[in-house]
Write a protein that binds this DNA or RNA. Structure first.
Lengths: 142, 142, 142, 142
DNA sequence: GTGGTCTAGACCACG
DNA sequence: GTGGTCTAGACCACT
């Protein structure tokens, strides 16, 4: 038996004026949700049609985002059932992880700097992203 | 006192995989540079051809960015001389700034997610960085 | 200066009655071409529009195949220029390679058997695939 | 001499990622089994429910395959008893066989390509396999 | 009802 | 001219 949509707490939003393709914004938000812990292995994503309605875009655009996430192994799709966060955890060496973290953070800080954004405000925004809805209910294992 | 070519210190960078059009990234960086005080009235921008070489893109793309900036009154072009930051304070709109912040943060969070990094640890690392930077007390040239 | 289409020797074909999606047949044929050595790093693929005309399908279908190949790192796409076989060579350990070869071949043989196909005829077909056009001109390095 | 349930030895397998619809794969395997002599007139096929469980698919999908086979006269269904290979020799058409060969070989070549294996070495390995098999001189039960 | 494939066609970004 | 994004809508495969 399936329970109601657990990911109801997760809200997708589009900024159509940003120049960033809609499908890419969806991909980013799913991956950001995973990083923030708001989406975890087994969680169901909104159906293609539902998200299309929510975001007022064409279902094909949602489909495309989901397909790309599936190719990358981020989500899994079950015909006629729905779309779920995949169980895969890459699990790399601690050293490698550390290296990657520094690489990402360093590059990001540089970019913020060149955009005239203070790290302080950027960190605040990230915190919001991370903790905003982190206390929402989750589906276990699957 | 400012010299004519001081903006040589200003480095443009593109992320071609971000989904943000190249011309848009150039516009953003010019405006951010002005907002941050790294570009001021009268500073010369790289020539179209130079920037095209630097960024490994087509000169037409640079041209388009410059044209749009000129329309907005941010820069001024002098035939046979070069392109310069205009006298007007363009005052990058708050909305524009907000857009850019969300864009940067969202994309960054997505990368963290796909790298299997939790936002929590990333934020910690950023805080360290911010603290270190603030203790050194000034911005280094770049 | 670009020379004529080097991959002219490579012929794509679709079997629309097979039940296998067109986009997947394209993907398969590109990958098979690489395995057969008929497509090598740097070779240009037909343009999206050209292949669409050749195969009498919609350009979007070709686009989709190319996009998926790009996500997988098999090809690289240059805006306004064309689509090329990527330079990446996975390069794994010899032991791993051997294991994988046996795995693939074993599974394939089993499937042929259960389809009532003799290995002899299957091998013949594979040889045709492999040597058919292997003496066609190639573009160097890129 | 044939017993009623001898087809228990016949194993069906699905490749859900191949893009070939599940029902089609079942049809193909039944017809191939007949062509190969592993399924003969009067042999009983697994019940719809049993096959659905074995292949982890929906019973409706099996049903659809059986229905189509029955329409073609390949099998016969007896209410309350089971499903059996019909008396008629369906004679899988040459075209049909050709299609399946191309399908299998093409897909296999694609996998080899994406695994970075050259067809040449794969063919060698297959030849070895074929030789070994032919020396043992008979097909082992399976 | 859920996801998957495909088409036809508009408009954008880039060379 | 090249590839890229998106829409609207038809039809298929599967639960």
């Amino acid at each position: 038996m399936k329970t109601a949509i657990q990911s109801a707490a997760f809200q997708f939003k589009l900024d159509l004026k940003s120049g960033v393709p809609a499908y890419r914004q969806i991909i980013d938000q799913v991956q950001a949700g995973i990083a923030a812990g708001r989406l975890a292995s087994g969680d169901q994503l909104p159906t293609v049609r539902q998200m299309a309605v929510d975001l007022a875009i064409n279902p094909n655009t949602v489909l495309r985002a989901y397909r790309e996430l599936e190719i990358r192994g981020v989500i899994e799709t079950e015909q006629g059932t729905g779309t779920f966060i995949s169980g895969r955890k890459p699990q790399q060496s601690q050293a490698e992880r550390e290296r990657q973290l520094n690489q990402l953070v360093g590059e990001f800080a540089a970019r913020c700097g060149s955009a005239g954004l203070a790290l302080a405000e950027v960190i605040d925004r990230l915190k919001e992203l991370a903790y905003e809805t982190s206390r929402s209910g989750k589906r276990e294992g699957r």
